[in-house]
């Protein structure tokens, strides 16, 4: 993914390290290597690579992760603006 980086400092991903049980599932499901293990717990090492797919939070049984999941799609945002709702692909 060299050269393919998106806008920095915008994503809603949050990790509460205190609640992490070290199950490593977030590392398995993240398609952009946002997490790493350190001292038996997950750490965010590349927050700006996060695409807010929600896979990590959905699979975090300990509830240590949170993110507002969504589709990074301009057409969906426009659809949402026009209909006054959340971004939607219209289906």
């Amino acid at each position: 993914m060299a050269g393919l980086r998106y806008i920095d400092g915008v994503v809603t991903l949050k990790l509460d390290t205190e609640r992490c049980t070290g199950c490593r599932l977030c590392i398995a499901v993240c398609p952009h290597a946002v997490f790493h293990m350190a001292g038996g717990r997950a750490r965010i090492v590349d927050r700006d690579a996060c695409i807010e797919c929600g896979a990590c939070a959905r699979n975090c049984a300990a509830g240590a992760l949170s993110v507002d999941p969504g589709v990074g799609c301009a057409a969906a945002v426009i659809q949402g603006w026009l209909s006054g709702s959340e971004p939607t692909c219209g289906c």
């Binding site: 393919l4 980086r5 915008v10 398609p31 996060c50 990074g72 301009a74 969906a76 945002v77």
Partner: peptide, 14 residues
Amino acid sequence: TGSSTFTSLSGVIR
């Protein structure tokens, strides 16, 4: 952005 695999919704809105 909707076809790419590395964009976030927060970034697209921004």
